[in-house]
Design a protein around this nucleic acid. Structure first.
Lengths: 259, 259
DNA sequence: AACCAATGGTTCAAATAATGAACCAATAAT
DNA sequence: ATTATTGGTTCATTATTTGAACCATTGGTT
């Protein structure tokens, strides 16, 4: 691992649950030497990627990342485009919808929309890490990802989020074959109990999967009507989003042919 | 310059005008060795901070920056808070408004709002670099920045954007004293011709200036009425934004006492 | 008040990783 | 057909990173 990769990997320890991290904690989390972590963080701080919280001396993400994200969006406006698609999809289905993108070996939720129709709804946060094996979005991505990538994910540790999480690699592979056939993944209580999610893959310009679009509803609201309406609306939204970002579905993707 | 700083500095060459950069260009821009740039970019790519555009092999910012920006916003929600303030300020003034933040030694526009009132309006882009000496926002920041910081900026090269740009350090310092007195900066055609900008500083929790809030109007619309209304609305918006992000104005900031 | 265990931060010889000139293959321009 | 330029690679030399040990402070225990 090069020095730069090491420094950037430190940024990976920040999350919603851990927005600020002290030097000692970072040392423990990363397993690196304290002096090393200190020097790397000092460099990241110099560049504005992290800053030190006021009273405390612990680190948090810095303002420089905002500039980069704004430029990224200007070059590849996935988030801004997705907001419209998500809003429409939430309106159509009456449920919470979200977009997640593949970032290295992890899948991150990055944009979401709610519907005002029901008082109860599935809540989402942006920049949350989703597992590939335990979420409909993750399965939708895996089903259309490169075999090497799938192998890498399935050979890693597969945690159980709920009692309903499938963690057996062979069972997951069987599931993926099914997803490939219908072009959509479902997960009932696999990540959060009482949540029924549908997800379709989103493709980039090279016809490679770059993320997933999902509808998350309380299981109690999954009536026959909804179970018919959601897949249809979702498939349409997936096609729209892939198209608007200049993407293209691969030849073997069933939703296109069926459209 | 450490290796990490060097790698991150490469990200600084991306902008709206240059969203994708090839290896040779990046080598020339940075003045580093080609092999070095290649290795650094490879590491940045590995971490998802840049990616290579499809057909071309040139680099552009990667998806990983989106995740970090979402987390930064979750920890310090300046952008989301500012959007409301900017929208209100645009409605009140009928003009374009924008927020810029200090990021290291540069000032970046990061959020903006338009008013639908007039057909012509000053256009803005996010993640644009503003100069300290040539914009109202920059002057508002400098006027309340640490003396060392001001010295560093004014001792660097000061480019002329338009015929009206003031580039003499002593003239700028005199201007800054004036800004400190009234708590607001103005620039008429200093960055873009025909644009009259007003700006107030925004302060962080430690009473240090972190950026500026500005109203940008065509000079032709700067009637006596507007020239009275804009400063008042802007001062109010500045106070609101500083307050909402948990910031505090320093004791010598005049807008507070006047309120 | 003395003690202990944390914390963030610093030092310096030893180990390792970064560097840069030269080189290659493949396009693009003349 | 020739030349320049592109992205990418190599490897001995060089310079940076590393890590164990060390401080100074802080907060909690007894």
């Amino acid at each position: 691992m090069g020095t730069v990769t090491k420094a950037l990997s430190l940024l990976g320890y920040f999350s919603h649950g851990r927005p600020e991290i002290g030097l000692s904690d970072l040392t423990r989390l990363s397993g690196m030497n304290k002096a090393t972590v200190y020097r790397l963080m000092s460099e990241l701080q110099e560049s504005g990627f992290v800053e030190q919280a006021d009273g405390d001396r612990s680190y948090r993400l810095g303002p420089q990342v905002l500039r980069l994200a704004a430029l990224r969006e200007a070059a590849v406006p996935i988030l801004s485009v997705s907001r419209r698609v998500l809003k429409d999809l939430s309106t159509q289905t009456g449920e919470t919808t979200h977009l997640s993108l593949v970032q290295g070996s992890q899948l991150n939720s990055l944009s979401h929309a709610y519907s005002p129709r029901h008082a109860t709804r599935v809540m989402m946060e942006d920049a949350e890490v989703l597992t590939y094996h335990g979420t409909a979005s993750g399965l939708a991505v895996l089903a259309f990802a490169e075999p090497d990538f799938v192998d890498a994910i399935l050979s890693g540790p597969l945690h159980s989020h709920t009692a309903a999480t499938v963690t057996d690699p062979e069972a997951i592979r069987a599931h993926l074959r099914e997803v490939r056939k219908v072009g959509m993944a479902q997960s009932v209580g696999g990540f959060e109990a009482e949540v029924h999610s549908h997800a379709v893959p989103v493709f980039g310009p090279d016809a490679k999967v770059i993320g997933a679009l999902a509808v998350a509803a309380p299981v109690s609201r999954m009536t026959a009507d909804q179970a018919a309406l959601i897949p249809e609306a979702l498939r349409g939204a997936g096609r729209t989003l892939t198209h608007r970002i200049g993407g293209a579905a691969p030849a073997d993707y069933p939703n296109e042919a069926a459209a």
